[in-house]
Structures are given as C-alpha cells and as structure tokens.
C-alpha cells in the first residue's frame, strides 16, 4: 500500500516536508495591544512527510489540526519551529518564493460552497490561480482548465464551465474545489475535512477521487479529519492530535489495530460501526472535555481525562515520543 521510498538515499532532503518543533500561537490582546495570553493552537509538532505519501491528521475540533494545516499552507506564521519544504526553510522564503511555494501546495476546504466565490463561474474560478501565477495565454488556460475538470470527472467539461457554484450539487462543488487545488500542478495537497459537509453516498466518491489523483500524480496528501472511520482506506499513516500536539503516529492498519495512546484508544472506542447491538450497550467515554488551549495542563495534556494517569509523573512532565512498537510513536508515560 504505502509507496515505499526505501530506495532513496537516507538524505534528509529527500523528504518533501520536514516539520520540527512547530508552534503556532495566536496572541490574545486586550484593547488591541495588551498581551493577555495566547492560544497554543499548535504546540510543538514534529513530523516528516515523504513524496507521494498520504497521511491523515485526526483529532477532535480544537485539537489544532486545522491550524496546523493553515500553517503548512503559509496562511499562519509559525510562532516557533521550522517547516522545511523540499529542503527550503519556509520562514526564509522571499515573497516571490512564497508565491511559488503556494503553487506547490493545493488546498481543499471543508465547506465546498463557501470555498467557491459565488459570483464566478467554474471557468473563471479555475482560471484565477492560473492568472495569479502569470499564465496569460487564454488558450493555454482553457486547455488546463478542461484537463483538470476531466481529471476530477466533471465531464464533459463544457457542461460545467459556465455554471455557477449554486447550480452544482455538493459533490460537484467539492470536485471543483479539488480541481482548483490541482490546477497549478502542486506536489502536495492539504485537504481539511474534505467530506464532512457531504452526504454519506458522496463522501466515498470524493475520497476515492482524491486518493486516485494522489496515487496517479504521486502527490503528498495531507488529509485532515475528525472521522477515524474514513481514514483506513484513504491514508497510509495517521497522526492523532490532542490539544495542539501529536500524541500518536503510525501506519494506518498498525494504529487502528493496535492503538497505544489512551486518547487514541478512547477515540476508537467511541466510534461505532453500524450494528444493531450498539443500542444495547453503553460506550466508554473519558470524562471531561478537551482542555483550554490558552492554559494547557502541565505534563501530559490528556492526564486530567486519562484512566491510567499516574500522579507525580503524567501531571508534571511532558511525555516524550516512545516507540512501543516498531514504527509506532506514542507520547505516553505508560510506554516508559
């Protein structure tokens, strides 16, 4: 399944994206200048993505997964840490280089209707990125637009070129969003909850489409979702996030079949597969709610809700990444 890159030299620059100790904080100010704290949306995240790999970041709302996506897209400035894309440090890019970087990273959003300007037709929506990136030849643009529409299976393209977003179904709108993300031939796609606003029957189509394109174009796909059940077939590696940090990461089957971190275990236990027996048993759900990101708990952030919390350790010291199983990271003192 996973596109193996073992044949590449173990050179750090072979990885497409290297994120080290990334922090994205949002300052809270009173009366516009008085600094009263910060939302620690992303708080010390490390990972490396290879070319052609599909990964998923999974977590509940407010766990920082969307802030992470936006930081990778260059929409938020990292507060601290390093993001290296194809060997270049993002923080040091000139404005022109940043623009080139933006062509390298496509973005698929959650709400397909909101993601499309309602006053432009499909042709114009898809032409915009090309115009922004200086493709002046009208015929060249038209050629690329048609090609990408075919690629997202909106064919025949003529039928869709003149349509406005409100004339399309949710699934078709999301295809246009994907087409827009692809039109600049990026090497990475970031999809933030790409199907959570769509109907069950359409979800699979869109996910299949994304995964197919990713495989064909050998793109790196960063798939951000709250729904673990969709992940198995559409990603190769999973990162589970909680309160601004990655608590566990491993290959899909490994993680889903052998979850190590208590939070991941709780999350998996809470998810139902359709089964009439569900109605007859209560699910185990950890008490409490995710912590405030303004004043995150000391030590392990999950310790106030964790059934295995060890006093004097979990509430004091931040757990490092342990490797309880091969190629399986989990930030929990239980693996010590």
């Amino acid at each position: 399944m996973a596109t193996s890159r073992a044949d590449l030299p173990a050179n750090a620059e072979a990885s497409l994206l290297k994120v080290r100790d990334l922090h994205t904080w949002f300052e809270l100010r009173q009366w516009g200048f008085l600094r009263v704290g910060a939302v620690h949306a992303v708080d010390g995240v490390n990972f490396t993505l290879e070319r052609g790999e599909a990964v998923a970041f999974v977590g509940e709302s407010g766990c920082g997964k969307s802030s992470l996506a936006r930081t990778l897209l260059g929409l938020h400035r990292p507060t601290r840490g390093s993001v290296r894309f194809a060997g270049r440090e993002m923080q040091s890019l000139s404005p022109a280089e940043l623009k080139a970087y933006r062509a390298e990273v496509g973005y698929v959003q959650q709400d397909p209707y909101g993601a499309l300007p309602p006053f432009l037709d499909v042709r114009r929506i898809l032409a915009e990125p090309l115009i922004v990136h200086g493709i002046k030849d009208r015929q060249e643009r038209e050629r690329r637009i048609r090609a990408v529409l075919e690629e997202v299976r909106l064919s025949p393209a003529e039928e869709y070129l003149g349509k406005f977003p409100h004339m399309l179904s949710g699934g078709q709108q999301q295809r246009v969003v994907i087409a827009r993300a692809l039109i600049l031939a990026p090497s990475m796609i970031i999809a933030d909850e790409p199907v959570s606003m769509l109907d069950a029957s359409v979800r699979v189509e869109i996910l299949n489409l994304l995964r197919g394109i990713q495989a064909r174009r050998e793109l790196t796909l960063v798939f951000i979702t709250h729904d673990l059940s969709t992940v198995r077939h559409f990603a190769e590696r999973i990162f589970v996030m909680y309160a601004g940090q990655v608590v566990e990461s491993a290959a899909v089957d490994e993680l889903l079949d052998h979850p190590q971190h208590p939070y991941t275990q709780a999350l998996l236990a809470a998810i139902a597969d359709p089964d009439a027996a569900n109605a007859r048993r209560l699910r185990e759900v950890p008490a409490g709610e995710p912590p405030s990101l303004i004043q995150p708990p000391t030590g392990c952030r999950f310790h106030p809700r964790c059934p295995h919390a060890m006093a004097g350790l979990c509430d004091r010291d931040d757990p490092p990444d342990f490797t309880p199983r091969e190629n399986h990271l989990s930030a929990c003192w239980l693996h010590r």
Partner: peptide, 12 residues
C-alpha cells in the same frame, strides 16, 4: 459507510 473495524472498502 466507511467502517472502522472492517477492511472492506466503502462503495459510492
């Protein structure tokens, strides 16, 4: 419906 505990691929 994608199922967490089954390996069958969901069909659109």
């Amino acid at each position: 419906v994608p199922k967490l505990r089954q390996r069958s691929r969901p069909q659109a």
